[in-house]
Design a protein around this nucleic acid. Structure first.
Length: 285
DNA sequence: ACACCCTCCTGGAGGC
DNA sequence: TGCCTCCAGGAGGGTG
């Protein structure tokens, strides 16, 4: 019975930190050193800033010197500019050149960068929520993001104090990119399950042991997904049009009605902060 | 500081 | 090749 319901949720899956990091790593090898020859913007709504014509003009002739990630944002240094991309729900960055099964250049491909070498980069996005920015300073886009969960910044003491300093429900706090950068709906549910914490617990009620459990769970969940090349339910693809391998290893997300891997109780679905949320009613009191 | 609501957008599912 | 409605989801904005 999890079948139909879970499949519905599977349609709405966004790239989170492990998926964006996977894209960044593979784009780095594909694009660093490449020079942009031409840019085509097929749907102007994909470009947040500047205006499409200016976006095209500024990129032409520039060379990609670095590819990085901050939270769920991709940062491409197209010297001297920064091309920043957020994939949101269904966005993809594809390098057809490298694909064993190349994507069609269909109506969902909204921006195309053509390199001097002939290599191309597609920005494809069925739901059109994804955005591209071209700015002189990345801080204009990513300046308000919180700490990176996989960085030293998430030290145990600082993390416990950070949680204690807020009075919010755990799930909305963990989804807040100013609080912690990179988690989305899937990995928040997975981390809370792993740490045996209910999503409605208030951040300032966690014991030091619980805070540490959560910190470790977040890191473990992200690292595990990253090792699998991310989670693909339906739409996530890396630049080579390949799916991520982590979906079968999810413990609660999209598994309503299925048995909790720890205790066998049926996974429940509730709504927290307007978002579908998966918990084990027994493990997460 | 926090909760709540709205907008963006569309494919898929379910009702009929 | 059936049509129509509903809905999820991240981020940013606004309001209470």
């Amino acid at each position: 019975m999890a079948g139909a319901a879970a499949h519905t949720e599977d349609q709405r899956l966004m790239p989170e930190l492990p998926e964006v990091e996977t894209v960044a790593r593979r784009l780095r090898g594909a694009l660093v050193g490449e020079t942009v020859a031409a840019v085509e913007v097929r749907w102007e709504g994909s470009v947040a800033t500047p205006a499409a014509a200016e976006f095209v003009r500024l990129l032409a002739g520039r060379t990609v010197t670095a590819v990085g990630r901050r939270g769920k944002f991709l940062l491409l240094h197209v010297d001297p500019h920064w091309l920043i991309v957020h994939l949101r729900m269904t966005g993809q960055l594809l390098v057809p050149d490298l694909c064993a099964a190349p994507p069609r250049c269909d109506r969902h491909v909204h921006v195309i960068l053509s390199m001097a070498s002939g290599r191309q980069l597609y920005f494809r996005d069925a739901r059109k929520f994804g955005r591209l920015w071209l700015v002189p300073d990345p801080a204009a886009v990513v300046g308000t993001l919180g700490v990176e969960p996989l960085d030293e910044g998430l030290a145990a003491e600082a993390w416990a104090a950070k949680l204690a300093s807020r009075r919010r429900q755990l799930k909305p706090a963990l989804l807040d990119q100013r609080f912690l950068a990179g988690l989305g709906n899937i990995y928040v549910d997975e981390a809370l399950w792993s740490a045996r914490l209910h999503p409605l617990r208030r951040t300032d009620t966690l014991s030091p042991a619980e805070a540490e459990r959560l910190r470790a769970a977040i890191r473990a969940v992200l690292l595990s997904a990253l090792a699998d090349g991310g989670t693909t339910m339906v739409s996530f693809r890396d630049p080579c049009n390949e799916v991520g391998g982590h979906a079968p290893r999810l413990d609660v997300y999209g598994r309503r009605g299925a048995p909790c891997p720890r205790c066998g109780t049926a996974i429940a679905r509730l709504v927290v902060g307007q978002r579908g949320t998966h918990v084990c009613p027994r493990c997460q009191p």
